[in-house]
Design a protein around this nucleic acid. Structure first.
Lengths: 335, 335
DNA sequence: TTGTTAAAGGAAAGCGCTTACTAATGTGTC
DNA sequence: GACACATTAGTAAGCGCTTTCCTTTAACAA
């Protein structure tokens, strides 16, 4: 299996390798007929361009980086997989993707070891800003997902966590709840802040009771939901509804209730956020908010593709609205 | 920010670029002192080798491919993430990883578009064999995970699904169960077959009852567990214990029981497989088998690394044993 | 002194590709 | 027939790196 290069093809076609290169890149400098002939030969020979050589002269790597704030902890696997899947589908052929966590890369020049042609940053935290700015300064085509960025010059696709949490909390209030607990997410995540703010605003506006001991700090991981819920249930008085800032923690919280002999939702209601795939299999089925991950990712990749081929004119900013998903984990207190 | 190449360094150090290259690659042909000087300059200048140029001459791509049988369906997100994470950690610096699904690549020469330096194949199905053989024939360093491969010349890390399912079923039998149902996994997955075989062997050996209508075909996805369970519960007689071939389907099955007014485990016991992270948050906590994913992946990457740097002598074969995880979803019928 | 050898580093080729330049044709105009 | 000027294709340079030869210098033996 001899390596077939443009030179191999050139000989076969009785043209120079220059012409082959041009034909394969659809240059207007070669006749259609010649192109056809050359392409045919390339096909027959099973020619595959050497991406290193091509990249070397074009100063490209054909690798696009996908960066998450963290890989092990904050980012949910299904979100990650979704991003990867859509990226593969939506990216032009020939590109590889490389996954990394910003946290792990930070400070080091590790990032520049791979010279990415473009990047998708799935950002959870303002801690990522330095990294993001660095990429933009370098002139790298980059798209930021998930978190709102205060720069005009970069495409940014987000969801409105505040709005989603608001919808959710307002629903709980409509169902007659007046005593609320909160399990917060990982502390430096913006989503944590937004969801919490909606919680505070809605409870304040509706005159609901929120005792300090009903507000617990979690990490977005299931175990922290479990522990936080135990603490909340340990208080003298207990809330009627607890908002766990994501579904993972909600699952842990439900578990804690069960372990301590509380029935969900009869004794206590639990609401989550994200609508993870298993949310509808929990007992009770979790009332939550669907985060439009798919859309965010799809639009993000589309934008990056445009950036890559130069067809992007102005940066795109888009906020995709989340949907309230009502299931069975909230008791109707009005009846 | 001028691009700094070995030539930039060479000028600064008053040596030829050749010497720089050698110094940076720790060649014995340059004096230690010279090396130190050159490395210092490289550091100061923030030099990053151009991977394309390096790859071009060394005929390497610095990309290793990670292939899954399928990406959307059969492979669980957390497994996938685990593989990615460990790969990142364990692979030598400078390498990028590229994720792909065999299914999507198959037939096309798409695979050869990227010229991988090595590959990890996470195989679920014998359908992957053609692909695997092709890679081996090409002489690509490759390691197969998850599924047993009948080739002597390739490293292979697996778990024993038959053994795991056997342990699980034997436990259920010990708990007094004598009427068993089965929800099978995706049909062309080897794991499906192995788990089913253990089910059949144990039930046969223990003289348990297994009615045909208690055996349903699933897909490994939660919904199929739900539907299958509904079908099983629709039978005139029902089993006392149902083995769902993975936790996702078990979750669906539990849900179906609940919806139809059956209590788990009081009316019916459910057992799963894999020990997904949420398994201990289901209600009831799921009795299942822990699949040693971490170990498989870690050993796989280690092997590939050795393959890559030529320090592998003989292919490694290893079967890692799964662990029974007893929780609350199986009722003790003996009391 | 001459010869031999080891050590250290340089010159140049070349990896496979794109892309200025250049050259060879053909075509139309006066 | 002489001129411009498209059209098509070829020549050669060069992307940043490794590596094969060479060359230089120093050290040592005879």
């Amino acid at each position: 299996m001899e390596e077939v290069t443009i030179l191999t093809i050139a000989k076969r076609a009785n043209v120079s390798h220059t012409t082959v290169s041009r034909a394969l890149n659809d240059s207007p400098l070669v006749k259609e007929e010649t192109k056809r002939k050359i392409r045919k030969i390339a096909d027959d020979l099973g020619y595959v361009p050497n991406i290193n050589a091509k990249g070397l002269v074009e100063k490209r790597s054909f690798i696009i980086g996908i960066f998450f704030s963290e890989l092990d902890t904050g980012t949910s696997p299904s979100f990650l997989v979704d991003v990867i899947n859509r990226s593969k589908e939506a990216l032009p052929v020939g590109y590889s993707i490389s996954i990394d966590s910003i946290e792990a890369l930070d400070g080091s020049n590790a990032m520049s070891r791979h010279q990415y042609d473009g990047a998708i940053v799935v950002s959870q935290s303002t801690n990522d800003d330095a990294f993001i700015n660095m990429m933009i300064e370098r002139g790298l085509p980059v798209v930021i997902l998930n978190r709102k960025i205060n720069r005009e010059d970069v495409s940014n696709f987000t969801t409105d966590d505040y709005l989603g949490a608001r919808k959710l909390m307002e629903y709980a209030v409509r169902m007659g709840h007046q005593k609320f607990g909160l399990i917060k997410g990982a502390s430096d995540f913006v989503s944590t802040h937004d969801r919490q703010q909606a919680f505070l605003d809605v409870t304040a506006a509706s005159g609901a009771t929120v005792k300090p001991e009903w507000i617990q700090q979690g990490t977005y991981l299931p175990d922290s939901g479990y522990e936080s819920m135990r603490t909340i249930l340990g208080a003298i008085d207990t809330p009627t509804c607890v908002f766990a800032s994501n579904d993972d923690m909600a699952a842990g919280a439900v578990r804690a209730c069960q372990d301590l002999g509380y029935s969900v939702p009869d004794d206590i209601s639990i609401i989550g956020y994200d609508d993870m795939s298993y949310a509808k299999y929990l007992v009770p089925r979790l009332t939550t908010v669907r985060k439009p991950t798919d859309d965010i990712v799809q639009e993000g990749i589309d934008a990056l593709t445009k950036l890559l081929d130069g067809s992007m004119t102005d940066p795109i900013k888009k906020v995709i609205v989340p949907t309230l998903i009502v299931r069975d984990s909230v008791k109707d207190l009005r009846k």
